[in-house]
Computed example of a mutant assay.
Amino acid sequence: MFTGIIETLGAVIGIEKEETNLHFTVSSAIGNELKIDQSVAHNGVCLTVVALNAGSHTVTAIEETLNKTSLGMLKVGSKVNLERCMQMNGRLDGHIVQGHVDQTATCIKRSQLDGSWEFRFKYDANMGNVTVEKGSVCINGISLTVVNSTANEFSVFIIPYTYENTNMHEINEGDTVNVEFDIIGKYVARLLSK
């Protein structure tokens, strides 16, 4: 379980293919604090730490994960949003995030406003996911508030702190992002569809 509050940016320093799996080695400020078998969200995808080195860790993404997320698009040098799992005695500053990406979306608009940025994303609504205005959504692991929601598109506004301290500053029009829709909204949508 995560909150969508990014702890730090990591940098991919190695990618190794093994059959249909990809092993990602990531260098970060929290690399020396991690433990083997620990869950860490990478761009919103919960992955298990399988190896450690000085200031870096390695995780493995299987084919199922690669097919449903944008992790397969990572390259050496890519910046990755990192968050360790939530502590039960801490504050829930973002929203309830499982680290299970529902689908990807495409950035169709990026515009700089007066002191913030607007990003608009388009997704395949046939998968049954929905957004609501002022509801929560998780983009690349970042807990964000939805604005201007339609059947298959939504916008988010990004404050300077989030823009600078996550990989939002690297997202351009045409780029693919990981999306985890609000868990409560998913259950309501499923119940109403019956």
Score class of each variant (00 low, 15 high):
13 I>A: 09
136 S>A: 08
21 N>F: 12
79 K>G: 08
66 L>A: 08
191 L>M: 12
180 E>H: 06
96 I>P: 06
40 V>M: 08
82 L>G: 10
62 I>T: 00
32 N>D: 15
48 T>I: 03
56 S>D: 04
53 N>D: 06
141 G>Y: 00
162 T>D: 05
163 Y>E: 14
12 V>Y: 09
138 C>H: 08
105 A>G: 14
136 S>G: 08
186 K>E: 06
5 I>P: 05
96 I>V: 13
146 V>E: 07
38 Q>C: 08
135 G>W: 00
91 R>W: 07
92 L>S: 07
7 E>S: 12
54 A>N: 09
147 V>Q: 05
176 T>M: 12
170 E>W: 12
70 S>G: 06
29 A>I: 07
72 G>R: 02
118 E>W: 04
50 V>H: 04
71 L>T: 03
36 I>H: 09
114 D>P: 10
79 K>F: 13
63 E>M: 01
136 S>Q: 02
25 T>L: 02
177 V>W: 02
83 E>V: 05
160 P>M: 14
55 G>P: 00
139 I>T: 00
3 T>P: 10
152 N>R: 01
50 V>I: 13
100 H>Y: 12
34 L>Y: 02
29 A>E: 15
25 T>K: 08
158 I>S: 02
95 H>Q: 05
103 Q>K: 06
57 H>K: 04
35 K>E: 14
38 Q>L: 02
170 E>K: 14
21 N>S: 15
156 V>K: 05
173 E>S: 03
115 G>F: 13
50 V>L: 09
61 A>E: 01
161 Y>W: 13
64 E>L: 04
60 T>N: 02
158 I>W: 11
65 T>H: 01
76 V>N: 12
116 S>V: 03
41 A>P: 02
87 Q>C: 11
10 G>F: 02
97 V>A: 12
82 L>Y: 02
119 F>E: 10
113 L>N: 15
30 I>G: 12
26 V>P: 07
143 S>Y: 11
153 E>I: 03
77 G>T: 04
54 A>S: 03
12 V>N: 06
9 L>W: 05
5 I>C: 04
42 H>M: 04
171 I>P: 10
66 L>N: 06
194 K>G: 10
188 V>R: 03
116 S>K: 09
23 H>M: 14
55 G>Q: 00
66 L>F: 03
188 V>L: 10
92 L>R: 12
127 M>A: 13
112 Q>S: 15
130 V>N: 11
92 L>Y: 08
162 T>I: 02
123 Y>M: 00
95 H>T: 06
114 D>S: 15
95 H>P: 00
164 E>V: 13
185 G>W: 01
185 G>N: 07
135 G>D: 10
64 E>Q: 11
10 G>M: 12
28 S>W: 07
122 K>W: 09
107 C>I: 13
139 I>Q: 07
167 N>A: 05
142 I>H: 09
16 E>D: 14
128 G>M: 11
146 V>K: 05
193 S>L: 10
143 S>R: 07
28 S>K: 04
19 E>A: 15
47 L>R: 13
86 M>T: 07
5 I>K: 11
143 S>V: 07
176 T>Q: 14
145 T>H: 00
20 T>A: 15
187 Y>N: 05
32 N>P: 09
75 K>I: 07
4 G>A: 13
148 N>W: 05
118 E>G: 02
140 N>W: 10
191 L>N: 10
8 T>F: 04
141 G>E: 09
22 L>G: 08
61 A>S: 04
100 H>P: 11
95 H>I: 01
172 N>C: 13
34 L>D: 01
17 K>C: 02
182 D>L: 00
